[in-house]
Amino acid sequence: MPSFLYIFAVAFTITWFFGYNSKMETGTEKVEQEENNAMNKVDLNENNKVVEITSPLKGEVLPLNEVKDEAFASGILGNGIAINPKEGVLVSPVNGVVNALLPTLHAIGITTQEGVELLIHIGMDTVKLKGEGFKAFVKQGDEIKIGQKLIEFDIDLLKSKGYCLDVPIVITNMMNYTEVVCTKETNINIGENLLSIK
């Protein structure tokens, strides 16, 4: 009987020790994992560079929510800003690649060297013009540089046909970024800072 009690006591002690130790280890691992996750987030934030987007147009700067198109104004298509152009020339706001150019030439998609995906849409409902009044100087797949002419569009023609000229410039892969800072300027020239993406 004393031998049985001794064996029981040893077994209980071993079980209690390893059981307790496992719980402690699990808890410690969890805390360490949470600390590592937090450190990784900090490291990512420190390593992420701010991507600057220059203005592709000369004109009046508008908050995106003032654009007369619900898809843009609501932010469904991405975060960004809009410009009411004073001239019918759209240049590249970044160094990157043309990843989409619609046949109607009223919209262009660009991926920056840093991986930011931009959509620039010239006017509202201008797809209905089927390319009339638009001329492209690039094609899909072209590498582009800041300030390079992308598209010319006939402002007078668009106005005469009753089209809104607002040009939304939106980031379509916002899930990869935490913040977009828009210029405070109400009027902007080509090449001036328009957006900062973090």
Rank of each mutant, 00 (worst) to 15 (best):
K49F: 01
T54E: 03
N37A: 13
D43S: 11
L62G: 06
D69L: 09
V61E: 05
G27P: 07
V51P: 04
G88P: 04
N84L: 08
E87L: 07
N95F: 11
N48A: 09
E87H: 06
F72D: 05
L44E: 13
E52N: 09
E46M: 11
V31M: 15
N48M: 10
N21S: 15
M24Q: 14
N45S: 11
G27I: 13
N21Y: 14
G75D: 09
A38K: 14
I53C: 03
K68H: 06
E60D: 12
S74P: 07
K23F: 15
P56S: 11
N79Y: 06
S74I: 05
N84H: 09
K49H: 10
K58P: 06
D43F: 12
E52G: 05
P85G: 03
E46Y: 05
E46A: 12
S92H: 07
V94L: 11
M24R: 15
K68R: 06
P85T: 06
T26E: 15
I76T: 09
F72I: 03
P56W: 00
V50T: 13
I76L: 13
V42I: 15
P63H: 03
I76K: 09
E46L: 10
L77T: 04
N36C: 07
T26Q: 14
N47D: 14
N21L: 10
G78V: 01
E29T: 12
I76P: 00
L90K: 03
N37R: 14
G78C: 08
V94Y: 05
E29D: 14
I83L: 01
D69C: 07
A82T: 01
N79H: 10
V61F: 02
L64V: 07
P63S: 10
L57V: 03
L44V: 08
E32D: 14
I81A: 01
N21C: 11
E35G: 00
K58G: 04
G78D: 02
L62K: 11
N95D: 13
K68C: 06
L57Q: 02
S74H: 12
N48W: 00
S22Q: 14
G75Y: 08
V61Q: 03
V31H: 11
D69W: 05
V42M: 10
N48P: 03
S55E: 02
A73Q: 07
P85K: 00
E66R: 13
N84T: 09
S92F: 02
L44A: 13
P56F: 03
E35N: 12
V31P: 01
S92G: 10
I83F: 02
M24D: 13
M24P: 02
V61M: 03
K49Q: 09
V67G: 01
M24K: 15
I83M: 00
L62P: 01
E25M: 14
E34N: 11
N65S: 15
K86M: 09
K23T: 15
E46D: 11
P93Q: 06
L77Y: 01
V31W: 10
M39E: 15
N48S: 10
N36H: 11
P93T: 10
N45Q: 12
L57D: 01
Q33G: 08
D43C: 04
P85N: 01
A38L: 14
G59F: 04
S74E: 09
V91Q: 06
V42T: 12
N95L: 09
T28Y: 14
A38R: 14
S55H: 04
T28K: 14
E66G: 08
P85W: 00
E70A: 12
L64H: 00
L90A: 02
V51Q: 05
L62A: 00
